[in-house]
Design a protein around this nucleic acid. Structure first.
Lengths: 333, 333
DNA sequence: CGCAATCATTGGAACGTTCCATTGTGGCGG
DNA sequence: CCGCCACAATGGAACGTTCCAATGATTGCG
């Protein structure tokens, strides 16, 4: 009992090797009858296609390398699901690498992907990734696209972070808030910068002083900061993302304040837990799954036509008003 | 500018093709000097190893197929991270497939993995997976191991679910509770059965009547059930997992009851958010990352020696007492 | 000093596809 | 009846490694 090859199928069907190969790919060059003949023979023998040989000969692996900066982050998990879903529909399979925000690990996996070989890589760059990484990829001739976190150039897919925090801030302004702080965004990557920037512009445009409460993207840390907030502190918090917002609401509860009533809280991302939260979280929806699907499309396009100018797809976010911003209480300032 | 092959490196270094190949693998059969010579030549030319040819010739891909039942579930995301981490250390790379609990998708991806080919598959079976799947894998001669959700036979790694819910229930009994319900576990898979069973045994052993409050593993749904709980209902809830427990605490809060004071809640898994929760969640810790790492080891062992009896590694859980069970309040029943 | 054993290197087949050029066959127009 | 074309099928090289058997050089030992 050994492996069945196309050669064996061809013999069984009584045709030449290359005919059998064409038939198994369902090539229309062959008569339907011949194709059926071969298909039946393959089924009879239990033939299993060997992709490794095809990859080697054709140079196409139908495999994409996916570098995730932190898969245990629900936002990136959802995004990964979207990427995988869309690539699968297109007949591609995903090689996963979780970098855990380590740029050395990221580098190593990228080199591994280059040998593998993959047809392209989708990168959510680890914090601190030098822009030269893209140049290396270009020189290596590896089709690539960034997701969520990006650089000035190259194919990219991500949410419009600036617009998101601007909407959130303007919503709070419209509710009458004046002392609005930005919570989170300690790490220096493009997402942090852009989200801070949207908030900053909305505040300065309204003639108010922006204020940043720094913390890492961690429920516990955010909770600590919110719990320690003085009574004469901000009346509203624009949070870096939902995890930080969750932390903020927990911290407020711990210090006896009701999120939404005593201090307004708005998150960012609208991860699944946001709607079920107590109080239900007002947040900026960016649909990570959709971003993932779009990113897959952008990369596949790039693979199909590497000469074309890299596409940049920036998805518009929407504000989902729930309870934590206090809008339902008709806040009066 | 075309691809550099071993042949080119050999020419540059002035040795035979097979010598260069051995040198690049750093084989000790060769003199250190020769190896260095070849390494230098490879570096000079910018040689990149082509794994696809190696896979085809050797039949070993150093690739593992990972079937995740639902990657957006934080527990499985963390587990995936553990698997990826351990496999990477062993020089293996992960092909990811998220089945989203669809058995047809699972089947399709498995067939894809068979062609790919992968050296083995790690499966977190989708709910409703027939045990015959393992038989197929065996017949296909694909080394495999199940994770968390398992079957009677075959290599497996997972937590001791029975012991976990038993510990949780006994803890609540020791705190004086008598009306203890089990929340969640609507889906019929091995995990649901085992967790219910641990609770059931502890209750009947104590001479009490077990009660199941059914709901799917979903924060919103669990919140609904908890919110509707009557005043003369259970005083304590053993939850299927942390997500359900989160839902339970939110539902209790919504109906004006304080989790831990009015109704005790215990979760299962100890996902990252559990410690930061309000109130901090008492839960059964199973360390998904460790399970993932262990599962990777079990599969690699199986690949190394397919003839050996499949190993089953059941990890002991620990009870992490925080606030939601009310233990800190010295509950008196 | 000769023969075996060891060491370092070499040559070439093999892995199972894809791809390209070629052959054979039948139909059709001139 | 011949040449031409389209169609269906074929033959064989190529992809870039690994693996194995074989070679030549050097050492060890009786």
């Amino acid at each position: 009992m050994q492996r069945i090859r196309i050669k064996d199928v061809a013999k069984e069907a009584g045709v030449a090797l290359s005919t059998a190969a064409l038939a198994l790919r369902d090539d229309t060059k062959l008569r339907e009858e011949t194709r059926r003949l071969v298909r039946d023979a393959a089924a009879r023998l239990g033939y299993v296609y060997d992709r490794s040989a095809a990859v080697m000969r054709s140079g196409k692996s139908h495999t994409i390398g996916l570098l995730v900066c932190e898969i245990t982050n629900p936002f990136y998990a959802e995004l990964t699901a979207g990427v995988e879903e869309a690539l699968d529909e297109a007949g591609f399979v995903v090689m996963l690498a979780n970098t855990s925000e380590s740029i050395t690990r990221q580098r190593r996996m990228l080199e591994r992907f280059r040998e593998q070989p993959v047809d392209g890589v989708l990168i959510m760059p680890a914090t601190g990734t030098p822009p030269s990484l893209l140049e290396d990829l270009e020189q290596w001739r590896v089709p690539h696209a960034t997701v969520v976190r990006g650089f000035r150039r190259g194919a990219h897919t991500g949410p419009d972070n600036r617009a998101g925090t601007r909407m959130a801030t303007e919503h709070l302004l419209a509710l009458g808030h004046r002392r609005i702080a930005f919570l989170g965004g300690l790490t220096r990557n493009s997402v942090s910068r852009e989200r801070w920037d949207g908030y900053f512009r909305a505040m300065t445009k309204a003639g108010l002083a922006p204020e940043q409460l720094c913390c890492r993207t961690d429920i516990g840390e955010a909770a600590g900061v919110a719990e320690a907030l003085p009574a004469d502190g901000p009346t509203a918090l624009v949070c870096f993302n939902d995890s930080v917002a969750f932390g903020a609401t927990l911290g407020l509860l711990r210090s006896g304040r009701m999120p939404g009533r005593d201090v307004a809280v708005i998150g960012f991302d609208d991860i699944r837990e946001a709607a079920a939260w107590f109080p239900a979280l007002t947040t900026v929806r960016v649909s990570p799954r959709e971003i993932g699907r779009a990113a897959a499309r952008v990369l596949l396009e790039r693979i199909a036509d590497p000469a074309a100018a890299p596409r940049r797809e920036i998805l518009a976010p929407t504000l989902v008003v729930r309870e934590s911003c206090g809008a339902h209480l008709r806040w009066k300032g």
